[in-house]
Nucleic acid binder design. Structure first.
Lengths: 186, 186
DNA sequence: ATTACTATTAGGACCTAGTCATAATACTGG
DNA sequence: CCAGTATTATGACTAGGTCCTAATAGTAAT
């Protein structure tokens, strides 16, 4: 049986969310309704046409790569950044981050969040990690939100030491000390 | 004075590189030539129309955010594995692994290779990283092949210590000691 | 069954940002 | 001045729409 309007609109929303590149024609085919129905649905749901959708996906990317801050290169989303001082990013643990067996996040994602935040916090063209000492305090599960806070604790001529503590709620889940190399002297 | 064809085409290329969202009409205005001239130029230079350009920027963004760090069980390709003893994997550094600025591999990819190899080498349902101490010995560049060798150096009731050394050719590029937690006793 | 209402489909005019082909005009070097 | 290149103009056509009007289908209540 064909879907009712409400169900169809819900699925439509999901379909477009998942593949913003899909045209009305393809959607009409997929839901076995006319193109006009799809268009009415989009109107009611306030979903723009495929070219506008594509453009906004592109725009997101572009803004970030244009920013002086290498935001696109940070794993997670940077929500605060004071160069050479501190930075905060959040990472929502999703299906692709966990072991399917037990829904526990793979350690390297937490490491990646912390490490890339360290790179971002340093005001330098070429910041590289030299050493790191890290502890995984407790395992992080699917759908948890990891907030990583990086703090610069020492800076000398060529090296910067950054401490990162990552929490889920009030619980510390990860902590690490990163020694970073800079290309420019201080 | 107006630019000669060759100069214009060169500048055109740069302009589109910089702002792929620009239309032929806007370009025509900018270079003070007709739209048709811009179109001829694009033809000769093999530059697609604005919608295609936008789409490809969007496309890049789309699968990159999905594969920032892939979901595979092991990052890299396992070429040898003796459970609870040793393992070897290789990772070819490609464009998605490097900073675009300087073509140097982001540290977390090397970490991910090593960390996931540690998980794989342990014969356990639920192996998790507890601590790690790592050193990035030299930076790895685009197109280099990283060979990671993991060796179990100690095993007690609940913990296993694994040492990983990663080389590009004969050069050591990464080394680390990982303390892993097992769910089952030994 | 008739009415009332919503949902769906259809059609036409118009839009943008193009492609492709043809033709006319302008510029430039020998 | 003429040839060859560069530029501009024009018209027909395209995809993937918007916006508006109108017809038809389905359903629920009286």
């Amino acid at each position: 049986m064909k879907l009712k309007k409400k169900d169809r609109q819900e699925k439509l929303n999901q379909a477009i969310e998942k593949t913003p590149f899909i045209t009305d024609e393809e959607l009409a085919e997929q839901f076995q309704v006319s193109i006009q129905t799809i268009r009415l649905d989009r109107m009611e749901l306030g979903i723009p046409e495929v070219r506008k959708r594509i453009e906004s996906v592109a725009q997101e990317n572009w803004d970030e790569t244009l920013k002086a801050l290498p935001a696109a290169e940070v794993i997670g989303e940077v929500i605060d950044l004071e160069l050479d001082q501190s930075a905060i990013s959040i990472l929502d643990i999703q299906a692709e981050h966990v072991f399917s067996r037990n829904q526990i996040a793979r350690g390297h994602h937490l490491f990646a969040q912390a490490n890339s935040l360290c790179v971002a916090v340093i005001d330098d063209e070429l910041a590289l990690t030299v050493n790191a000492s890290i502890q995984f305090k407790r395992s992080v599960r699917l759908n948890e939100r990891v907030v990583a806070k990086a703090k610069v604790i020492n800076t000398d001529k060529k090296r910067t030491t950054v401490e990162v503590n990552s929490h889920v709620g009030k619980e510390l889940v990860f902590s690490g000390t990163f020694e970073m190399y800079r290309s420019t002297d201080r």
